[in-house]
Each structure stands twice: as structure tokens, then as C-alpha cells.
Design a protein around this nucleic acid. Structure first.
Length: 157
DNA sequence: GCCAACGTTGGC
DNA sequence: GCCAACGTTGGC
């Protein structure tokens, strides 16, 4: 995938039963570390995030897959502690503490979308054809959006 | 629950 | 470095 250094918009997937927009909203200061990214391509996008970037929160693996809300990146990448915790489902025994393999960012709740924009609907727009989310077989859990894609999605909200 | 698609692992 | 086997993701 092409990646442009100026990219400032993201989409991050989470299972709402595990951690959804409702959880984020209830966190202290409405912030949360975005843990558990264990895919190199997604990890590289995590590393590229900067404070102030915006991200859609996407609900995956649920009854109504779709974009639920808007978040802000409030802390750039730092080591994901769960990789060193044997009790964590995200434990990675291969990760070297001297050179941590996985990072996380901190996100903050910005707002709900006025309505959940379903994956089914997103697939219908030619404007979003290049978005990995809607492409067959793509499982990437963190992905960049162009400014055009970001604004388009907000325009159909 | 099924299963297609994809990423990772590890023998060779 | 190849590639078969296996594990995971995530829509349906």
C-alpha cells in the first residue's frame, strides 16, 4: 500500500463487544491506549500517527459493522505493555523488551457519528473504492484515509 | 457457525 | 528462499 507522510486521517477497527465507542466515552478523560495491534502493516501505521490526527472508530465482527465515531490521537506511538504481560491475550513472547516489537497510541473520544455508517453502505460509493476497508479480503485493522475520503464520509453522515 | 482470504511459522 | 500447514480476521 502507498503511504503518504502527510496523511492525517485514519480508521481503526475494534470489536464493540470488547471495546467500542461506548467504552471510550466512559473512560476517564475519554482517553484510552489503543492496545493489541499485532500486524506489521497496522503497526507501521500506528508509528506514523501524530498527535492531533483524527481517526474513525470502526465496529467490526458484530451485528452492524460500520463507522461509529471520531477519535483524536492524543499520544504518539510508545511501547505496548501488553506484549510483555503473559496474562494478556496480546502477549508476545518473541518481543524483546530492549527493542519492543509492538506500539500503541492513546486515543480520545471526539464524538459519535450522527448515525452509524455501515460497511454495506460504504461499499456502494465509488469515492471509497480505494479504501482498504471495502476491498475484498482486506483485514487491515489500522489504515490511512486520504483527506478526500475522510471528508466524503463525513459528508454522507 | 461457516469459511474465504490472508499472514505467519517453520521444515527443508 | 520456498511453500505447506496452521492460525486469525471478520463478513455473512
Amino acid at each position: 500500500m502507498r503511504y503518504d507522510k502527510k496523511m492525517r486521517y485514519w480508521l481503526m477497527k475494534s470489536e464493540p463487544d470488547v471495546f467500542g465507542i461506548e467504552h471510550l466515552k466512559k473512560r476517564p478523560r475519554q482517553t484510552e491506549p489503543w492496545d493489541g495491534v499485532r500486524n506489521y502493516q497496522a503497526r507501521n501505521f500506528i508509528r506514523a500517527m501524530r498527535v492531533g490526527d483524527r481517526a474513525f472508530l470502526y465496529h467490526s465482527n458484530c451485528v452492524q459493522p460500520g463507522i461509529a465515531g471520531v477519535m483524536e490521537i492524543v499520544k504518539s506511538a510508545y511501547p505496548d505493555a501488553t506484549q510483555f504481560d503473559p496474562a494478556s491475550p496480546y502477549f508476545d513472547p518473541r518481543s524483546d523488551p530492549q527493542n519492543p516489537r509492538w506500539q500503541r497510541v492513546d486515543v480520545r473520544f471526539v464524538r459519535d457519528l450522527k448515525r452509524l455508517i455501515s460497511l454495506r453502505e460504504l461499499k456502494n460509493y465509488p469515492e471509497l473504492r480505494d479504501l482498504p476497508l471495502v476491498q475484498r479480503g482486506t483485514r487491515l485493522s489500522v489504515m490511512p484515509l486520504t483527506e478526500r475520503q475522510w471528508k466524503f464520509i463525513l459528508s454522507i453522515e
